[in-house]
Every structure is written in C-alpha cells, then in structure tokens.
Amino acid sequence: MNRFWCCFFIFWPILAVLVSWYSPDMDWWFPGEPGTPIGSQIDDLFYLILVIVTVVFIGTQIALCYVLWTGVKKQKGKALFTHGSHNLEVIWTIVPSGILMFISLYQLDVWKNFRVQSTFPEAAIEAPVAEVTARQFEWRIRYPAPGKVLKLTPQPDDLYTVNDLHVPTNRPIVIQLRSGDVQHSFFVPDLRIKQDAVPGQVIPILFEVLKGGDYDLTCAELCGWGHYKMRARVLAQPESEFNDYLLGLQQEQNYDGVADEPAPSLAQQTKEVRQ
C-alpha cells in the first residue's frame, strides 16, 4: 500500500505534464496567435516562465517522490538524524533568488513599453484613435471627426458607436479608456490587451494591431450581474478603410433627413425610431 501511494504522488505530476503538453493540440490554449507586437512579447515571456517552472515542477516532484520511495523502503532501524545542512540552505537560497531576479528584471522592458506613458510614441499619444467608455453593460465609443484630434471633453462633431471599435492596423495607436459607472476591464484576448476602466480616470492604452480582422472584446472586471454579456468587437482594418469608415459614420450622423441623396440605412432607422 505504501508503494501505491508513492506511485500515486508521482502519477499525478506526470499526468499534469502530459495534459499540459497536449493542451495546445486540444485547443485548450491561447485563443490564437497574438495580433500585436506586445502580444508576441507576452507569449514569449509566458513560454520562458513556463519552461523554467516546468523544470522546477518536475524536479521538485521527482525529488519528493524519491524521498518518499526511499523512506518507504527504510523500515528498519532509525531514521537519519540530521537537523539540516548549511551548505544546502545557502545553495537553495542563492540559486532560486538568481532565477527569480532574472525573471523579474527580464520582464521590465516589455512592461515599460506597454504601460509607461513616457515611452509611448508621441504621434500616437497626441492623437488617440478613439475614446472607449465602458458602461453596464456595453462599450460606448467616441471618435473625433475626420481630420480632427480627440478632445477630453466631447465635441459637437464627435462620432459615436456602441460595441464596435474600429481601429487602423499597422501603426501604434492609443485608445482612451474611461468608465461611465462602475469598474470594468478592457480585455481583447487575441491581442493580449487588458486594462481596467476606473471611474473618474482616463487611461490610455497603447497597442498596434498587425493583421486586419475581427477580435472579441470582453470585460474582465466584475461590473454587476451582466458582467458576462459585455460582448463587443474590435475591428481592425487598413488605414484607408478605417478613414472611409469614419467618413461614412460622419455622413450618417450628419444626415438631416431632408437632403436629396438616399439616406444611409442606419440613420434612417434611428430617425424612424425617434419619430
């Protein structure tokens, strides 16, 4: 029975490693290739830590089972009488602290580039693409009028949408994040972006989408009963298409309903609802 328990304690780490190894094949892994440079860096750091941690995990679990196995076999005589070893203590203090220090210092640059505002490219920070206001339970988006710069306070010619954030690809952009009521968190798993939206604060998020496409935007901070359903999209498209989109949005929004040209469908609907 004692040996059974030894096998039991070695069996589960093996199973854990196997399950982890096959997880990417089973699609129990990252939702896809990261769509941003920062995302690739995050993934690389994740894998770096994963390798270090796996080595330590396997090492310690094997050590644990080894000492259990030898302990089970030793049933005669007294146990080893030792109170410890100073040399061992020194070794297993210094080696892990070196590894941990390496991990933490190695991360600093990525964090700095992602979050520290003074490192943000000037062009991006001066002309944020949009302002995203999280509310219970939707994302309100405000763009500046084409050719204008986003102001902190809403302008009469600003453009508005809900739950559809259009962004240009292949250049660093900044989104201004705010909250209209309680706390939320702007989470785009495919792009590896997450930032809390704090009431009373405007927080810039810097990122660069590499590939055009349609990315899920979710909320990652409990914001009430409908937390799970704050589903939205980030639509990344090339610069020219993005500009066209803004122009179209402006046309819809400025349409007064009496001009000759056929009314854009969305504006039409809004108007009908209002009447």
């Binding site: 644990l64 302990g71 146990a79 892990p96 933490s104």
Partner: peptide, 28 residues
C-alpha cells in the same frame, strides 16, 4: 513585481526543507 518575485524565494526554501525533512526518514 520585484518584491512579489522575491516572496517566492522563502516559499521555495520551505519547500526544499520539507523535502529534506522526508529525506532519510521512515515513511508510513
């Protein structure tokens, strides 16, 4: 981050010492 990484160190020391405690013992 640095202080948090450092707190992993005493935890690691404790883990190694537990394994050291079992080492050479009589396990039932």
């Amino acid at each position: 981050m640095i202080s948090t990484m450092m707190i992993a160190l005493p935890s690691a020391i404790k883990t190694f010492n537990w394994i050291g405690t079992i080492w050479g013992g009589k396990v039932e």
